[in-house]
Design a protein around this nucleic acid. Structure first.
Lengths: 223, 223
DNA sequence: TGTACATCAGTGAACGCGCGTTCACTGATGTAC
DNA sequence: TGTACATCAGTGAACGCGCGTTCACTGATGTAC
């Protein structure tokens, strides 16, 4: 998660007292980072223009120089959250031992993608919820705000890539490939939601890692 | 879903003009049903005391004769939603052919529970989200508001019962039983959330039923 | 059977809150001459 | 190098909204006599 920390929390946010000049300097960025912090703390509903401007040490309406509306800020925050998910997946992928057989390697990559997803959900609950929940109101594709990780691929593309490897390595018959990523994603997403934001937080939370691995076992066998 | 309709929508809600007497008659029930209607339409965030009283044709503060707070109403609505989920599962269970072998019957029951869950998520999106999302703020057990379906068992109990059958029928080794219901629930819940409230609504929504069955295949094999 | 009265469900008005958003403005910045 | 000026980022004040919640009240109901 260190990469996420560096990417997300090197804030240039200035407090009212800290700002000496009339101009802020980099308000657009400060608002985005305040928005990310709000999403971390309270999920998507906490991303408000007023609180973001408050944290940036700026009048509420100053935000409109940089974002057309509250929803525009939320879209930007959401994109950042998605790219942090991608980063978390890539960190796990990078830890896959290189000397495995193609079949084992493919399986390990699928697990890595799932593990990265689950780790992120647990470590950054608010951002996770911002990335994936309530998106029915934010469906617009926004090339302006990239959702990819350092490798240039977004979470969905990373997952598809891993599942593709299963086919290439002969672990999965090509006939079962179409839509298989949906099934894998569903399983992992469900566990994340139930534990992170739902009724299983108390009973399962402490054994999240173990259930995560068992779930990935199930996906591996079941796919 | 007919049972759900009967249970949920036989409203006694009165409009302002329809009410002749000073007393409402059954405001508690009218508020609960207004709350359910709001949850159906807009999910948990839409369940507000002011709108519920408005629909019941009553002053906003009248609600406090029957519910201690907005959250108390939400807890009651959520319980109703959970018991509607149970009902949907039971409807599917009732349709399982009785003449199967124990093993096939156990498998069919697990599928039925999952199918009932998914059908409900698709047909009653708002209630589904109310039942399962955001419950971290509503963790209190409330015996006052039952969450069971007609059979007296709530969704979680129905799921556990079905998975238990797998063990009894020899389909699943007893050693794998503990926590298995979590894995099954996760898979089904994830698909529901992604399609119903998330980024897969557009691409997967039209083929929801098919993906649901494929997901249940995966769970069956993987468990 | 008729009347006094206690109960308590619903009223009317108001509170403070935080939100998104708009308006006319002001003053620091950087460029053209 | 110095000065006039256009630009436009941030200000201050205000709007309307819907929300939860509290207060003192009023009047229909049903019971005790």
């Amino acid at each position: 998660m260190d990469g996420v920390h560096i990417a997300l929390f090197m804030s240039v946010t200035t407090t009212p007292s800290a700002r000496k000049t009339y101009r802020h300097g980099d308000l657009r960025r400060a608002l985005l980072e305040a928005g990310i912090a709000l999403a971390r703390e309270g999920g998507p509903a906490a991303v408000t223009l007023r609180e973001a401007t408050r944290r940036a040490g700026v009048a509420p309406n100053a935000a409109y120089r940089h974002f057309a509306s509250q929803q525009a800020l939320l879209v930007a925050v959401r994109a950042t959250a998605l790219s942090a998910v991608a980063k978390s997946m890539e960190d796990e992928l990078a830890a896959v031992p290189p000397k495995l057989s193609p079949a084992d390697r493919a399986r390990a990559c699928v697990r890595a993608v799932g593990t990265g997803y689950l780790r992120f959900a647990k470590a950054e609950t608010g951002l996770f919820r911002t990335a994936f929940a309530l998106s029915h109101k934010l469906i617009q594709a926004t090339p302006e705000w990239p959702t990819a990780g350092p490798s240039g691929r977004n979470p969905y593309e990373l997952l598809c890539g891993a599942v593709d490897q299963l086919v290439q390595a002969g672990v999965m018959p090509a006939a079962k490939r179409p839509g298989a990523e949906i099934l894998a994603w569903s399983a992992v997403h469900g566990l994340a939601m139930l534990v992170v934001d739902g009724p299983l937080a108390a009973p399962v939370g402490p054994h999240f890692e173990m259930f995560g691995q068992r779930l990935l076992d199930m996906v591996e066998k079941g796919l």
